[in-house]
Amino acid sequence: MNILTLVRQVPDAEARVKVSGSAVDLEGATLVIDGMDEYGVEEALRLREGGANIETITALAIGPKRNEDALRTALAMGVDRAIHVETDEKLDAVALSRVVAQIAQAENITLILVGGQEADWDSQALGAATAERLGWPQLTWTNELKIEGESLSGRHDVDDGNESFSAPLPAVVTTQQGLNEPRYPTLPNIMKAKRKELRKDTLDTYGAANTVRVVNAEIQTRARMNRVIDGKDPQAAAEQLLDLLRNEAKVLA
């Protein structure tokens, strides 16, 4: 079987975000592969190393030039090949799912791994939208995954706890922290990755039209009082804090 694992290049979580005009400005930001996607890359490799019969693991990115770096990271971690659908247009998840679904079909994919939540747009939608387009089941927020013959099993988080599941393949799985510890690419693997296929593609043939416009972006910060009390005298500090919470903030009775 073949696995497709989606990756994106995003600002590092610790990086300061800035807004210029009415849009987020990535100029000068440190960019990294989305941590959530790294779990997907790692999981694909582990499924293969664990004995599942996996022919090809393909990493896919749809987006601007910077995503090439995320694909290089995935190749250096060990995926076999990469596809980059390059576009500067920001597509919403419903539109993107058209592209992913068509590529999954063309590449004869049985399992798609998608990051559970994007580090930049905080979206959780692409996995489910893609599953729907393909008519496949989906498992979100997965923290344990096994392939047994034609089916998947594992565990994932749900609203009020977690569930063990089994589901038929083909399927879409979204990943999260806790699923695994992603490996660091080693120098030899980084060198080897340079010779792997990174196919470039354009959006032209996919019929993916964006339907969600971003009309504004701003950094809204609530002004905080930053009233810090020295805790050397615990009792006095505790009493002072309680007084503030009761009589100034009025949030405690």
């Binding site: 009390i229 020295d230 805790g231 615990p234 009792q235 505790a238 009493e239 309680l242």
Partner: peptide, 24 residues
Amino acid sequence: IFKVADYGIVGDVNQIVPALIEAA
């Protein structure tokens, strides 16, 4: 966390929190 805090105590939870529970 102090950068986003309205109120804060710099101190050891082992000492401050028992005092808070008592004061409350």
